[in-house]
Nucleic acid binder design. Structure first.
Lengths: 253, 253
DNA sequence: CATATTTTGTTTCTTCCTAACATGTATTTT
DNA sequence: AAAATACATGTTAGGAAGAAACAAAATATG
């Protein structure tokens, strides 16, 4: 057993931190591996003290251990990105927040009780916003196990009837040629719909997504107005952004 | 299952609070009972939100989970009702589950991985269903802080496009004359919409709601097909049900 | 006292877990 | 480049924990 967490294990921890509990049967589907592999992951995470295994899954070990010393995938980066993105939001805004791990941090950094209307297609984000006493509208749709995101015709249709003055989208890939992309077709479709209804489009990504191309592209580079990230991309992508007139907001802090 | 904790269950909680974790095998010896008895204790404590069961034991529940569950009353009754209601669900059903505390227990008792499609307007119910790997569709709408329920035109519209062969609704009042009622106008509207699209209407209520009339009535007595409750109502309401051809399913067990 | 109700035990079956081994994939060594 | 090693993942079989249904005992209730 290696010392550090691999990609899947870190993703697993991110999921766990947003939902509070994970199930072996779900994770198996999510990552496309056998239950045995998931169990080995959980065993390792339990030994490391990160999680407590339950019958059929696992929950977070304890609240106090959940602090920042956990080396979960890019939490610090995502948190900084979320804070910077949330700072862009003005009173009386009508915003849309996409489902995803990075966007969750945007919601978390919104000022409680703020007088805005937030539309989201993510269940966990909606709950988070409700706790902050922020007016929350949820798109309809079919729920995806993995991200608790709502997709499909129901979601698309309800978005089609709305107009946002600011939206925040996640992405699993950002490339100069290929633009912004996502690994899930249905999620990509929702992103496209939201963009069509938006006055200002923000994409929130950590630097690990730069240069990556996923199967489903949902926007060309010049379609978005701003990229909120934790550090600037390498030269070629940076130049492409300048040419496409995309603002780069790097939350270095 | 009794309403309050018995001696052994309270001792168990005391042990748990001092040690942080308990094991079935140990508790079995400690109290001189079978494992089954301990499991029943733990099951009850988990449904009440006090503990989280692990493999072979249990640990203290996390803070945020207890907040929601512990505050509610009639957990045992609601749990029984939920179980009886969930037993009505057949494979390949398309069902709707209303937002509410009692209906949450219906969702909790559905068999994991069951091949059904569940539509709901409650965020917490949707998350619960996702963990059980059940196909989940969420209505759109504005979220109400108090119940994390989605209401309004968005919700109504999406329900209007669906057809359910079974629905489960909560109610805050059931009376012979006034029918089924709810204290919240918006929620009542959703219930009306759902009924209009349903082949079979089930109302799940504990006995404390019998005889009560809330401001917003959403259905006459003879509109629903079945009432799932924990005990039969008094004579007058019982007769009214018979006359209106409403099946009464009392989950006494 | 008789009857109901609740609690606990028993059995059976299912689900989840573990362990041991097999396979595949990198990575290093020769 | 071939062989060896380590590592991650898959497969199979067996066991342990849990759930469901039923039976028995204890307790309460009229």
């Amino acid at each position: 057993m290696s010392m550090s967490l691999n990609d899947r294990q870190q993703q697993l921890m991110t999921m766990l931190e947003s939902t509070g509990e994970v199930k072996v049967a779900v994770l198996k589907e999510t990552f496309g591996v056998t239950e045995m592999t998931i169990r080995r992951d959980l065993e390792k995470l339990e030994l490391a003290g990160y999680v407590k295994r339950t019958f059929g899954g696992a929950i977070l070990a304890s609240k106090d251990a959940t602090l920042e010393d956990r080396s979960v995938v890019m939490t610090d980066e995502k948190s900084r990105i979320g804070r910077a993105a949330a700072a862009l939001v003005q009173e009386n805004d009508s915003i849309f927040i996409d489902g995803g791990t990075t966007t969750l941090y945007v919601a978390r950094h919104l000022k409680p009780g703020m007088n805005i209307t937030v539309v989201t297609n993510a269940l966990n984000i909606a709950l988070e916003l409700l706790e902050k006493r922020i007016t929350t509208v949820v798109t309809g749709g079919m729920a995806l196990e993995t991200t608790s995101t709502l997709v499909g015709p129901g979601a698309a249709e309800s978005i089609g009837r709305m107009a946002f003055n600011r939206i925040f989208l996640g992405a699993t890939g950002v490339s100069a040629k290929h633009g912004f992309s996502n690994s899930n077709m249905y999620e990509a479709e929702i992103k496209r719909m939201a963009i069509a209804q938006a006055a200002e489009v923000n994409v929130v990504v950590d630097h690990s997504k730069f240069g990556a191309k996923e199967l489903f592209s949902f926007a060309a580079l010049d379609t978005v107005h701003r990229i909120v990230c934790d550090q600037e991309p390498e030269q070629s992508l940076l130049e492409a952004c300048r040419e496409s007139n995309v603002e780069l907001l790097a939350a270095r802090d």
